[in-house]
């Protein structure tokens, strides 16, 4: 019964067991849900966009109102406590669409209400969405610069 000083060989075996015995994520199910829900949210987006195009907007012009409507739906679902349940099964199918972006802004805003409107809600609004906005802007800047230097047009 050796308690002291576990040797390196045992640790190595342990690391192997951890990998070998670790319960697997249900990959096939996760992918199916992500595809289905992600597709469905995009489909809703397409219908909303179609509605705005029917009002005489170009597909480009319809992009902004469509985004606003979807963000509104995502925010509402978050406020009612539905969106986290959807994401639990759909994973990236709910996180990747713009409704997931809304969830990432609204959830911390609601959460940190107890720390006040300025230092709670105001400060935490971008805790989750911040990385996406920051790196999205940085990447877009670099790409824009490269295109300017190389003289590429859209």
């Amino acid at each position: 019964m050796q308690a002291q000083g576990a040797d390196e060989a045992l640790r190595a075996r342990y690391r192997y067991w951890v990998e070998a015995m670790r319960p697997k994520k249900p990959l096939a199910r996760n992918l199916a849900w992500a595809f289905g829900v992600g597709g469905a949210i995009s489909e809703v987006g397409q219908w909303v966009q179609w509605f705005f195009q029917r009002q005489g907007m170009s597909p480009d012009q319809a992009g902004t109102p469509t985004a606003i409507v979807l963000v509104g739906l995502g925010a509402l679902a978050t406020g009612l406590g539905w969106y986290d349940r959807l994401t639990k099964v759909a994973g990236m199918g709910a996180s990747l669409p713009i409704t997931g972006f809304a969830n990432a802004m609204v959830a911390p805003a609601m959460e940190f209400r107890s720390e006040g409107l300025v230092l709670g809600v105001g400060a935490k609004l971008f805790t989750v969405a911040g990385p996406v906005l920051g790196w999205g802007m940085a990447a877009a800047f670099v790409v824009g610069l490269a295109r300017l230097v190389l003289g590429v047009r859209i």
């Binding site: 509104g72 406590g81 713009i98 802004m105």
Partner: peptide
């Protein structure tokens, strides 16, 4: 459009809903 909507809805939700 999307960002500002998310900010405004986020602030509104903080006032209306509880986690």
């Amino acid at each position: 459009g999307g960002i500002k909507a998310a900010v405004l809805f986020g602030l509104a939700a903080a006032l209306v809903f509880r986690p």
